[in-house]
Nucleic acid binder design. Structure first.
Lengths: 106, 106
DNA sequence: TATATTTGCAACTGAACGGTTGCGTAAATA
DNA sequence: TATTTACGCAACCGTTCAGTTGCAAATATA
């Protein structure tokens, strides 16, 4: 079972949940009201989001408020930045030559 | 079959392929040399990347060079920006009240 | 105390995923 | 021309995924 941020945001419902609870903590029932799936399905998504530390729980009586933990999302940013760095230097001919040599393991 | 950028980058091998061909176009065989999977498996990944327009093909004789199309990656950036916008305004109490009202559909 | 509400957990289902092997085809090469 | 090389496509396999239904536990309420 792979559990990383990229797999977490691969699902459109989970992306929507993330945006939904980004501004304020919410309970599974409250979240489920915004979607056409059962409360249990939402709970499963929350479990996955919790497992990759994108979300934290806070118990209040019988209710559990789920709130976002913004730290892990930076991993996406990090990968994007790495990509951009390579992408933006792709027209540098010297870089190309060096990478060709590297890729051909010479 | 869902085919969007987020699903494309969910797989670690595909992320590696993206970074690999970001600087220069490569053939499936050349790409496969960098991984412990078969050439056919790489081709499957390239097919997925092509389907969500992250990658373009360029035929050269019997070789096909796969090169990155940077445009679609911006969709990830766009989503991240949307998230950041909400995330960074989460401590604004007025915003919270407004969002509470909105979420409760009042 | 009996009942309703909120939740997590388990079992199940059909679809999708990531990988493999095998094969056909087109281009390069001997 | 015969052979090798590069590739895509199809079939298959085991695993994961997203969803469902059903149920038990804990808290709130009548």
């Amino acid at each position: 079972m792979r559990r990383d941020v990229f797999q977490a945001i691969a699902d459109p419902t989970r992306r929507a949940i993330i945006l939904l609870i980004a501004s304020q903590a919410m309970t599974p029932n409250a979240i489920a009201e915004h979607f056409d799936i059962t409360r249990q399905a939402v709970s499963k998504h929350l479990k996955i989001l919790t497992e990759c530390q994108l979300v934290k729980q806070e118990q209040a009586g019988r209710e559990i408020f789920y709130q976002l933990d913004g730290a892990k999302i930076q991993e996406i940013d990090k990968w994007l930045e790495e990509f951009k760095k390579i992408w933006e230097s792709r027209f540098n001919e010297l870089d190309k030559v060096l990478l060709t040599l590297k890729n051909n393991k010479l």
